[in-house]
Write a protein that binds this DNA or RNA. Structure first.
Lengths: 135, 135
DNA sequence: GAGCTTACCGGTAATCATTACCAACTACCA
DNA sequence: TGGTAGTTGGTAATGATTACCGGTAAGCTC
Protein backbone atom coordinates (compact mmCIF):
# COMPACT_ATOMS: atom_id res chain seq x y z
CA UNK A 1 0.00 0.00 0.00
CA UNK A 2 3.04 2.27 -0.18
CA UNK A 3 1.94 3.55 -3.53
CA UNK A 4 3.67 6.87 -3.87
CA UNK A 5 1.42 8.85 -6.16
CA UNK A 6 3.39 11.28 -8.24
CA UNK A 7 1.43 14.18 -9.71
CA UNK A 8 2.09 14.70 -13.39
CA UNK A 9 0.58 17.03 -15.94
CA UNK A 10 -0.62 14.07 -17.98
CA UNK A 11 -2.49 12.69 -15.05
CA UNK A 12 -4.16 16.02 -14.44
CA UNK A 13 -4.96 16.35 -18.12
CA UNK A 14 -6.78 13.04 -18.24
CA UNK A 15 -8.69 13.76 -15.06
CA UNK A 16 -9.70 17.23 -16.22
CA UNK A 17 -10.71 16.04 -19.65
CA UNK A 18 -13.12 13.61 -18.04
CA UNK A 19 -14.34 16.06 -15.43
CA UNK A 20 -15.16 18.83 -17.87
CA UNK A 21 -16.76 16.36 -20.25
CA UNK A 22 -19.51 15.53 -17.80
CA UNK A 23 -20.56 12.28 -19.41
CA UNK A 24 -19.29 8.82 -20.22
CA UNK A 25 -16.37 8.89 -22.67
CA UNK A 26 -14.29 6.10 -24.11
CA UNK A 27 -10.55 6.00 -23.63
CA UNK A 28 -10.14 6.70 -27.32
CA UNK A 29 -12.37 9.78 -26.97
CA UNK A 30 -10.30 11.15 -24.15
CA UNK A 31 -7.15 10.49 -26.10
CA UNK A 32 -8.52 12.29 -29.15
CA UNK A 33 -9.57 15.31 -27.09
CA UNK A 34 -6.22 15.62 -25.37
CA UNK A 35 -4.46 15.29 -28.68
CA UNK A 36 -6.76 17.88 -30.24
CA UNK A 37 -5.91 20.36 -27.49
CA UNK A 38 -2.37 20.29 -28.71
CA UNK A 39 -1.12 18.33 -25.75
CA UNK A 40 1.05 15.33 -26.45
CA UNK A 41 -0.19 12.38 -24.43
CA UNK A 42 0.36 8.76 -25.14
CA UNK A 43 -2.53 6.38 -25.57
CA UNK A 44 -0.96 4.07 -23.00
CA UNK A 45 -0.85 6.91 -20.53
CA UNK A 46 -4.54 7.65 -21.02
CA UNK A 47 -5.48 4.05 -20.37
CA UNK A 48 -3.17 3.89 -17.39
CA UNK A 49 -4.67 6.93 -15.71
CA UNK A 50 -8.23 5.97 -16.45
CA UNK A 51 -7.57 2.65 -14.78
CA UNK A 52 -6.05 4.18 -11.68
CA UNK A 53 -8.86 6.70 -11.42
CA UNK A 54 -11.24 3.78 -11.47
CA UNK A 55 -9.24 2.07 -8.75
CA UNK A 56 -9.34 5.25 -6.71
CA UNK A 57 -13.08 5.22 -7.06
CA UNK A 58 -13.42 8.68 -8.53
CA UNK A 59 -14.30 7.35 -11.96
CA UNK A 60 -17.08 4.95 -12.94
CA UNK A 61 -16.97 2.59 -15.89
CA UNK A 62 -19.73 1.07 -17.92
CA UNK A 63 -19.57 -0.81 -21.17
CA UNK A 64 -21.65 0.47 -24.04
CA UNK A 65 -23.57 -1.75 -26.43
CA UNK A 66 -20.40 -2.49 -28.38
CA UNK A 67 -18.60 -3.64 -25.27
CA UNK A 68 -16.33 -0.59 -25.37
CA UNK A 69 -15.45 0.76 -21.93
CA UNK A 70 -16.60 4.30 -21.18
CA UNK A 71 -15.48 6.34 -18.19
CA UNK A 72 -17.08 9.13 -16.21
CA UNK A 73 -15.72 11.39 -13.51
CA UNK A 74 -17.90 11.08 -10.42
CA UNK A 75 -15.58 12.79 -7.96
CA UNK A 76 -16.75 13.08 -4.37
CA UNK A 77 -19.83 11.03 -5.03
CA UNK A 78 -17.48 8.25 -5.94
CA UNK A 79 -17.48 6.85 -2.45
CA UNK A 80 -21.17 6.20 -2.21
CA UNK A 81 -23.10 3.82 -4.39
CA UNK A 82 -25.11 5.40 -7.18
CA UNK A 83 -26.34 4.82 -10.72
CA UNK A 84 -26.66 6.83 -13.92
CA UNK A 85 -29.21 8.17 -16.33
CA UNK A 86 -27.32 8.61 -19.57
CA UNK A 87 -28.38 10.50 -22.68
CA UNK A 88 -27.71 8.18 -25.55
CA UNK A 89 -27.52 11.12 -27.93
CA UNK A 90 -25.07 13.55 -26.30
CA UNK A 91 -23.66 11.44 -23.50
CA UNK A 92 -24.83 13.85 -20.80
CA UNK A 93 -25.24 12.01 -17.53
CA UNK A 94 -27.26 12.46 -14.37
CA UNK A 95 -26.35 10.71 -11.17
CA UNK A 96 -29.22 9.02 -9.46
CA UNK A 97 -29.62 6.88 -6.42
CA UNK A 98 -32.36 4.40 -5.93
CA UNK A 99 -32.98 3.46 -2.39
CA UNK A 100 -35.91 1.45 -3.76
CA UNK A 101 -33.78 -0.42 -6.25
CA UNK A 102 -31.16 -1.32 -3.70
CA UNK A 103 -33.81 -2.76 -1.45
CA UNK A 104 -35.46 -4.63 -4.29
CA UNK A 105 -32.17 -6.14 -5.42
CA UNK A 106 -31.45 -7.39 -1.94
CA UNK A 107 -34.87 -8.97 -1.58
CA UNK A 108 -34.80 -10.73 -4.93
CA UNK A 109 -31.36 -12.16 -4.22
CA UNK A 110 -32.43 -13.35 -0.80
CA UNK A 111 -35.51 -15.05 -2.22
CA UNK A 112 -33.28 -17.10 -4.50
CA UNK A 113 -30.72 -17.77 -1.82
CA UNK A 114 -27.93 -15.86 -3.53
CA UNK A 115 -25.19 -14.34 -1.42
CA UNK A 116 -22.68 -11.55 -1.89
CA UNK A 117 -25.01 -9.74 -4.22
CA UNK A 118 -23.88 -6.93 -6.40
CA UNK A 119 -25.77 -5.23 -9.18
CA UNK A 120 -25.57 -2.95 -12.18
CA UNK A 121 -28.36 -0.56 -13.01
CA UNK A 122 -28.10 1.97 -15.80
CA UNK A 123 -30.81 4.03 -17.46
CA UNK A 124 -30.51 5.29 -21.02
CA UNK A 125 -32.71 7.87 -22.67
CA UNK A 126 -32.73 11.14 -24.54
CA UNK A 127 -32.20 14.25 -22.45
CA UNK A 128 -34.48 17.32 -22.62
CA UNK A 129 -32.01 19.35 -24.71
CA UNK A 130 -31.62 16.64 -27.31
CA UNK A 131 -35.34 15.97 -27.38
CA UNK A 132 -35.99 19.65 -28.09
CA UNK A 133 -33.22 19.98 -30.63
CA UNK A 134 -34.12 17.07 -32.84
CA UNK A 135 -37.12 14.91 -33.04
CA UNK B 1 -38.17 -8.85 -45.01
CA UNK B 2 -37.98 -11.88 -47.27
CA UNK B 3 -35.49 -13.45 -44.96
CA UNK B 4 -35.69 -17.10 -45.77
CA UNK B 5 -34.38 -18.85 -42.71
CA UNK B 6 -32.74 -22.08 -43.66
CA UNK B 7 -32.40 -24.66 -40.89
CA UNK B 8 -28.91 -26.05 -40.62
CA UNK B 9 -27.29 -28.41 -38.15
CA UNK B 10 -24.81 -25.72 -37.15
CA UNK B 11 -27.60 -23.36 -36.25
CA UNK B 12 -29.25 -26.01 -34.13
CA UNK B 13 -25.95 -26.89 -32.50
CA UNK B 14 -25.32 -23.33 -31.39
CA UNK B 15 -28.85 -22.92 -30.09
CA UNK B 16 -28.73 -26.21 -28.19
CA UNK B 17 -25.33 -25.52 -26.72
CA UNK B 18 -26.67 -22.31 -25.24
CA UNK B 19 -29.96 -23.81 -24.14
CA UNK B 20 -28.43 -26.75 -22.28
CA UNK B 21 -25.81 -24.49 -20.73
CA UNK B 22 -28.41 -22.54 -18.80
CA UNK B 23 -26.23 -19.53 -18.10
CA UNK B 24 -24.43 -16.71 -19.83
CA UNK B 25 -21.64 -17.96 -22.08
CA UNK B 26 -19.24 -16.10 -24.32
CA UNK B 27 -19.04 -16.82 -28.02
CA UNK B 28 -15.63 -18.32 -27.47
CA UNK B 29 -17.07 -20.63 -24.81
CA UNK B 30 -19.78 -21.87 -27.12
CA UNK B 31 -17.23 -22.38 -29.85
CA UNK B 32 -14.97 -24.38 -27.53
CA UNK B 33 -17.85 -26.58 -26.36
CA UNK B 34 -19.03 -27.34 -29.88
CA UNK B 35 -15.49 -28.10 -30.93
CA UNK B 36 -15.03 -30.31 -27.88
CA UNK B 37 -18.10 -32.31 -28.77
CA UNK B 38 -16.34 -33.35 -31.92
CA UNK B 39 -18.52 -31.22 -34.12
CA UNK B 40 -16.76 -29.03 -36.65
CA UNK B 41 -18.18 -25.56 -36.48
CA UNK B 42 -16.52 -22.37 -37.58
CA UNK B 43 -16.01 -19.50 -35.20
CA UNK B 44 -17.64 -17.18 -37.70
CA UNK B 45 -20.67 -19.39 -37.77
CA UNK B 46 -20.99 -19.32 -34.01
CA UNK B 47 -20.88 -15.53 -33.93
CA UNK B 48 -23.30 -15.34 -36.81
CA UNK B 49 -25.89 -17.54 -35.14
CA UNK B 50 -25.54 -15.92 -31.76
CA UNK B 51 -26.22 -12.60 -33.40
CA UNK B 52 -29.31 -13.77 -35.23
CA UNK B 53 -30.63 -15.45 -32.10
CA UNK B 54 -30.25 -12.12 -30.38
CA UNK B 55 -32.12 -10.42 -33.21
CA UNK B 56 -34.86 -13.03 -32.94
CA UNK B 57 -35.14 -12.16 -29.28
CA UNK B 58 -34.61 -15.67 -27.96
CA UNK B 59 -31.16 -14.87 -26.64
CA UNK B 60 -30.09 -12.12 -24.26
CA UNK B 61 -26.67 -10.49 -24.21
CA UNK B 62 -24.80 -8.78 -21.44
CA UNK B 63 -21.21 -7.69 -21.30
CA UNK B 64 -19.11 -8.97 -18.44
CA UNK B 65 -16.57 -6.90 -16.54
CA UNK B 66 -14.02 -7.37 -19.31
CA UNK B 67 -16.42 -6.06 -21.92
CA UNK B 68 -16.72 -9.51 -23.45
CA UNK B 69 -20.19 -10.33 -24.75
CA UNK B 70 -21.97 -13.24 -23.09
CA UNK B 71 -25.16 -14.85 -24.39
CA UNK B 72 -27.97 -16.72 -22.73
CA UNK B 73 -30.88 -18.66 -24.18
CA UNK B 74 -34.13 -17.26 -22.81
CA UNK B 75 -36.51 -18.95 -25.20
CA UNK B 76 -40.19 -18.25 -24.81
CA UNK B 77 -39.57 -15.66 -22.16
CA UNK B 78 -37.64 -13.80 -24.77
CA UNK B 79 -40.63 -11.76 -25.83
CA UNK B 80 -41.29 -10.15 -22.50
CA UNK B 81 -38.92 -7.88 -20.66
CA UNK B 82 -37.00 -9.43 -17.79
CA UNK B 83 -33.69 -9.31 -15.96
CA UNK B 84 -31.19 -11.78 -14.54
CA UNK B 85 -29.66 -12.92 -11.30
CA UNK B 86 -26.36 -14.49 -12.29
CA UNK B 87 -24.06 -16.64 -10.20
CA UNK B 88 -20.62 -15.19 -10.67
CA UNK B 89 -19.08 -18.52 -9.73
CA UNK B 90 -20.81 -21.08 -11.93
CA UNK B 91 -22.71 -18.88 -14.33
CA UNK B 92 -26.09 -20.31 -13.33
CA UNK B 93 -28.81 -17.78 -14.05
CA UNK B 94 -32.30 -17.06 -12.73
CA UNK B 95 -34.74 -14.97 -14.66
CA UNK B 96 -36.43 -12.32 -12.63
CA UNK B 97 -38.85 -9.58 -13.36
CA UNK B 98 -39.14 -6.44 -11.38
CA UNK B 99 -42.39 -4.64 -11.77
CA UNK B 100 -41.09 -2.29 -9.08
CA UNK B 101 -37.88 -1.56 -10.94
CA UNK B 102 -39.64 -0.86 -14.20
CA UNK B 103 -41.86 1.65 -12.46
CA UNK B 104 -38.96 3.23 -10.64
CA UNK B 105 -36.94 3.58 -13.85
CA UNK B 106 -39.83 5.28 -15.55
CA UNK B 107 -40.33 7.73 -12.71
CA UNK B 108 -36.71 8.70 -12.40
CA UNK B 109 -36.44 9.30 -16.13
CA UNK B 110 -39.58 11.41 -16.13
CA UNK B 111 -38.32 13.50 -13.23
CA UNK B 112 -35.26 14.41 -15.26
CA UNK B 113 -37.23 14.97 -18.44
CA UNK B 114 -35.59 12.10 -20.31
CA UNK B 115 -37.52 10.40 -23.09
CA UNK B 116 -37.35 7.04 -24.81
CA UNK B 117 -35.99 5.45 -21.71
CA UNK B 118 -34.41 2.06 -21.72
CA UNK B 119 -32.50 0.35 -18.94
CA UNK B 120 -30.20 -2.47 -17.97
CA UNK B 121 -30.49 -4.18 -14.63
CA UNK B 122 -28.42 -7.22 -13.74
CA UNK B 123 -27.81 -8.82 -10.37
CA UNK B 124 -24.69 -10.83 -9.60
CA UNK B 125 -24.13 -13.06 -6.62
CA UNK B 126 -23.19 -16.54 -5.51
CA UNK B 127 -25.88 -19.19 -5.85
CA UNK B 128 -26.86 -21.56 -3.02
CA UNK B 129 -24.95 -24.51 -4.49
CA UNK B 130 -21.74 -22.59 -4.83
CA UNK B 131 -22.13 -21.04 -1.40
CA UNK B 132 -22.48 -24.50 0.11
CA UNK B 133 -19.67 -26.02 -1.91
CA UNK B 134 -16.95 -23.54 -1.10
CA UNK B 135 -16.35 -20.72 1.25
C1' DG C 1 20.04 24.64 -7.43
C1' DA C 2 22.49 19.98 -8.25
C1' DG C 3 22.20 15.19 -8.05
C1' DC C 4 19.65 10.79 -7.50
C1' DT C 5 16.36 7.54 -7.38
C1' DT C 6 12.46 5.70 -9.32
C1' DA C 7 7.78 6.31 -10.78
C1' DC C 8 5.92 7.83 -15.03
C1' DC C 9 5.75 8.63 -20.25
C1' DG C 10 4.75 7.29 -24.75
C1' DG C 11 5.77 4.85 -29.07
C1' DT C 12 5.45 0.27 -30.73
C1' DA C 13 4.54 -4.56 -30.74
C1' DA C 14 1.50 -8.05 -28.97
C1' DT C 15 -3.06 -9.85 -27.54
C1' DC C 16 -7.86 -10.87 -28.08
C1' DA C 17 -12.55 -10.57 -29.26
C1' DT C 18 -15.24 -9.65 -33.10
C1' DT C 19 -16.06 -8.79 -38.11
C1' DA C 20 -15.22 -8.91 -43.09
C1' DC C 21 -14.17 -11.77 -47.12
C1' DC C 22 -14.96 -15.23 -50.24
C1' DA C 23 -14.74 -19.78 -52.42
C1' DA C 24 -16.79 -24.23 -51.41
C1' DC C 25 -21.02 -26.33 -49.73
C1' DT C 26 -25.83 -27.73 -49.09
C1' DA C 27 -30.80 -26.98 -47.80
C1' DC C 28 -34.95 -26.40 -50.22
C1' DC C 29 -38.08 -25.87 -53.99
C1' DA C 30 -39.68 -27.24 -58.62
C1' DT D 1 -32.40 -34.81 -59.76
C1' DG D 2 -30.94 -29.77 -60.72
C1' DG D 3 -30.53 -25.17 -59.98
C1' DT D 4 -30.09 -21.37 -56.89
C1' DA D 5 -29.35 -18.73 -53.16
C1' DG D 6 -28.54 -18.86 -48.28
C1' DT D 7 -24.86 -20.97 -45.30
C1' DT D 8 -20.32 -22.43 -43.88
C1' DG D 9 -15.68 -21.95 -42.14
C1' DG D 10 -10.84 -20.80 -42.71
C1' DT D 11 -8.23 -16.70 -42.93
C1' DA D 12 -7.21 -11.89 -43.06
C1' DA D 13 -8.56 -7.46 -41.18
C1' DT D 14 -10.15 -4.41 -37.60
C1' DG D 15 -10.25 -2.10 -33.23
C1' DA D 16 -9.82 -1.76 -28.39
C1' DT D 17 -6.83 -2.76 -24.71
C1' DT D 18 -2.39 -4.37 -22.67
C1' DA D 19 2.60 -5.49 -22.44
C1' DC D 20 7.29 -3.85 -23.12
C1' DC D 21 11.00 -0.95 -22.34
C1' DG D 22 14.35 2.79 -23.09
C1' DG D 23 14.02 7.54 -22.06
C1' DT D 24 12.10 11.40 -19.06
C1' DA D 25 11.10 14.07 -15.08
C1' DA D 26 8.77 14.50 -10.14
C1' DG D 27 10.13 14.81 -5.47
C1' DC D 28 13.56 14.30 -1.99
C1' DT D 29 18.18 15.26 0.01
C1' DC D 30 22.03 18.02 0.61
Amino acid sequence: MTTKQRSTKQGAAVRDALRTSGGFRSAQDVYAVLRGDGGSVGLSTVYRHLQSLVDEGVVDVIHNADGEATYRYCGDTGDHHHHHLVCRRCGRTEEIEGRAVERWAGEVAAQHGYAQVDHTVELFGVCPSCTRRRR
